[in-house]
Design a protein around this nucleic acid. Structure first.
Length: 744
DNA sequence: ATGGTAACTTAGTATACCTCTA
DNA sequence: TAGAGGTATACTAAGTTACCAT
């Protein structure tokens, strides 16, 4: 946890030795903009069950800090010379050299033929290792089969053969897939913001129309059965379906629902149904539950039929053709109507999310493509041909009035390229992060209040990986904040706390109403500035009243093209992973232990980024089960050890081959037991540490996949141990191009 | 500058699905 | 061979950022 080596600390020291102008010199201008009055200091987390569950104890939170401190020391490892020094991010400025093989995000004049060769080699390596793996797998299967073969009935044998056949099919399919994969990363990039040249698709898939209730299922008002009109009935069912959730008891939810429901009613209905509390949805609710149950209990065949029907829909609507390649669409289904349930204390919870009609949808495709047919009797709102955007269809959602898009899957070129670019920007930041840090350290002393605030905000964003924090319209969304939108009530300053000086205690709700709680020692100058910013302010006032995300990002982009607040999150996440992996590296470990190390590195990032999850409902149970398994395995091990001892004793002095064989067997049994035990214990540790932490988000969005691919190569761990199929597809570009010596 | 919004990324949760075990 | 347990996927809300109009 030595923070000494990091630049922040170094500069801090320098500053300490050279105390410059203090905050007193600053003239605090009165706060200007921001129409919304946020006078009242809202009590935090009231009634937020979600938040509550996710609350961390202060102890855990301070552990968080230690982790981030740890990370700090990693930041300044000796840096490799940047590979693409002339990398320019701005899409518009990016120009691709036609005749070199450099990465697509480089404008480098110097050709890098080396890279191409490397790539070729990587290709071969990949193929080779894949073939080898396959072979090994094949042999193993065979052995297994032979082992079981003669002692088991023919029926079982057949099953085994079937299993093997299925496996072979899988492998074949995989090969096929690999062959068909579009290796877009080897191709030229398009000019200036052009996303595609040809795009054809079938349009979005609409959810089925509402089917009216069976006659024996009734809605009651004031104890009397009421046959509702179709639209009113549909919305009533939405409510009935949610009645197991606690939020249907909430005032806000109920009011919003009732208001919107009444809008769907006929005049008569509206006149009759005046009070939600007199509504009895019991039968609708029971019917829904029954349906769910019935669906669960479908026979195998029926389930298969359903599955095939779904597959047909996917085959028809789930793909598009983009520049000669068939690409999977991410969300080709129009979102079905229902009741809106935002996250946390959302003021709009319970409102009706309306059914989307083709007349609401805009289609985007090539002029010369087969234009998708709207559903019978309908027409599209608009068909356009805009190849500067990536969406295939869009509509406006009625609850928040925002746009929704149909876009491609994460494994598509369009998404992959962007993702790659994101990591290249973050790597670029690595080359200038020291300078930027020095700059904001300097800015902490600025005469300009705005500059100081910007510097402090940047310090938080860099050190704590906070989000930018846009302003939000009050009353439209839950009250959450990011860095720039922090309010005075969200931090508490402690001159000393637990033996540490200048501690800032953060407590606020961030994205998705996830609580951020952390106690962080900061450098003196930041601390002093915070005191200054908080002077004469109420809890509900903005901490950074002279700053917003636009200003911040504008400044950042002047420091490095393409630099925005979120790049720091990507950068710090990836560099942390790399550093942690390096630190935890131990070739002597077995695979399970190596994976635990990887997960721990991943976890450090997840903690940094505050990626939380609800502890799985079955957590305690499954933990207990695992512990029971461990215990029984321990007993087994003891037994096996005893038996080994016994066998040894018997074999001692004897040259009887049989006895020696027995000893060997027992030895193996002990060994196997030990291995399994270790594996389970490692698993238990991993799971316990992961209780409230979600690793997937950072894996998916923040960690440069090349770091993980290189780690696997170096540690001789199979990639599929850390990346599932989806991830491998998404990161195909990285898997293909990364060698063991990759450095972020 | 400010404000609005289009476009796209990031986020957690519900549920479908798969695998292993009793 | 069901079903428990765990993982993958679907879903969609909630962010960020660029860009445009005023």
């Amino acid at each position: 946890m030595a923070e000494d080596s990091n630049s922040v600390k170094a500069v801090e020291k320098e500053l300490k030795d050279n105390p410059g102008s203090s905050g007193d010199a600053i003239v605090v201008k009165p706060k200007k903009k921001k129409a919304k009055a946020k006078g009242k200091a809202k009590p935090q987390h009231e009634g937020k069950e979600k938040t509550h569950r996710k609350m961390k104890t202060p102890k855990e939170a301070s552990m968080d800090f230690e982790d981030s401190g740890d990370r700090r020391s990693q930041v300044n490892v000796k840096e490799e010379p940047e590979e693409d020094p002339d990398f320019v991010i701005k899409g518009k400025k990016r120009k691709r050299k036609v005749d070199n093989t450099d990465g697509p995000f480089s404008t480098s004049e110097a050709p890098l033929p080396k890279k191409k060769k490397k790539k070729k080699a990587a290709e071969e390596g990949q193929e080779n290792s894949a073939t080898v793996k396959k072979k090994i797998k094949g042999t193993k299967d065979k052995v297994k089969k032979e082992e079981g073969g003669h002692s088991v009935s023919t029926k079982k044998k057949k099953t085994k053969e079937e299993i093997e056949a299925a496996r072979a099919l899988k492998i074949k399919k995989k090969e096929e897939e690999e062959k068909q994969r579009w290796r877009w990363w080897e191709e030229e990039k398009y000019e200036d913001g052009i996303k595609w040249k040809f795009l054809e698709h079938k349009g979005p898939y609409f959810p089925p129309e509402y089917q009216t209730l069976p006659d024996d299922v009734k809605f009651y008002y004031n104890g009397k059965p009421v046959k509702l009109s179709l639209p009113a009935e549909e919305v009533a069912l939405f409510f009935a379906q949610m009645m197991d959730h606690e939020y249907t008891t909430k005032e806000v939810f109920r009011n919003n629902f009732f208001r919107d429901w009444r809008k769907e009613m006929t005049l008569e209905e509206r006149q009759l149904i005046m009070d939600l509390n007199k509504c009895d949805f019991g039968e609708l609710h029971a019917m829904h539950k029954q349906k769910v149950e019935a669906r669960k209990n479908l026979s195998k065949e029926e389930k298969l039929v359903n599955k095939e029907a779904n597959q047909k829909i996917v085959d028809e609507y789930g793909y598009c053709v983009l520049d000669h390649h068939r690409e999977r669409i991410g969300n080709f289904k129009i979102e079905p109507p229902g009741l809106f349930r935002g996250r946390g204390d959302h003021p709009k919870q319970g409102m009706l999310k309306k059914r989307i009609q083709p007349e609401d949808a805009i289609i985007n495709c090539s002029k010369d493509s087969r234009i998708p047919e709207p559903p019978a009797g309908h027409r599209w709102k608009e068909v356009r041909h805009d190849n500067t955007v990536t969406w295939l269809a869009s509509w406006t959602e009625n609850v928040q009035g925002s746009c929704k898009y149909v876009m491609l899957n994460a494994n598509s070129k369009l998404k992959g390229e962007k993702d790659w670019e994101k990591y290249e920007v973050a790597r670029k930041l690595k080359t200038c992060v020291d300078a930027i840090r020095a700059q904001y350290q300097e800015d902490l002393k600025s005469k300009q209040m705005g500059t100081r605030q910007r510097a402090v905000a940047l310090y938080f964003i860099d050190k704590l990986a906070l989000r930018a924090g846009n302003e939000k319209e009050e009353g439209e969304t839950a009250d959450t904040v990011g860095c720039c939108s922090l309010r005075v009530e969200h931090i508490t300053l402690h001159d000393t706390l637990d033996g540490q000086k200048c501690v800032v205690e953060f407590d606020f709700l961030g994205k998705d109403c996830i609580r951020y709680y952390n106690k962080v020692p900061v450098i003196k100058r930041v601390f002093k500035n915070l005191k200054l910013f908080m002077e004469n302010k109420q809890g509900g006032d903005d901490l950074f009243d002279r700053l917003n995300t636009q200003l911040l990002n504008k400044h950042l982009s002047s420091l490095m093209p393409g630099l925005t607040a979120k790049v720091f999150r990507t950068y710090n996440a990836s560099i942390t992973l790399q550093q942690q992996l390096k630190e935890l590296r131990n070739m002597k470990e077995n695979v399970a232990e190596k994976l635990l190390s990887y997960n721990r590195a991943n976890r450090a990032v997840a903690i940094l980024c505050n990626h939380q999850r609800a502890p799985p409902k079955t957590f305690e149970q499954s933990m207990a089960n695992l512990q029971a398994k461990i215990d029984s395995r321990k007993e087994q091990l003891d037994l096996a050890k005893k038996e080994l001892k016994q066998a040894k004793k018997e074999a001692k002095g004897s040259s009887d081959n049989k006895l020696l064989i027995v000893v060997e067997k027992k030895k193996k049994a002990v060994q196997r037991c030990e291995e399994q035990l270790l594996k389970m214990e490692v698993q238990a540790t991993d799971r316990e540490e992961n209780k409230q932490i979600a690793l997937s988000t950072s894996k998916l969005n923040y960690l440069d996949p090349r770091i993980s691919v290189a780690w696997c190569k170096n540690m001789e761990v199979q990639l599929d141990k850390i990346y599932n199929k989806t991830l491998r597809d998404k990161f195909a570009w990285a898997i293909d191009m990364t060698e063991h010596d990759f450095v972020f």
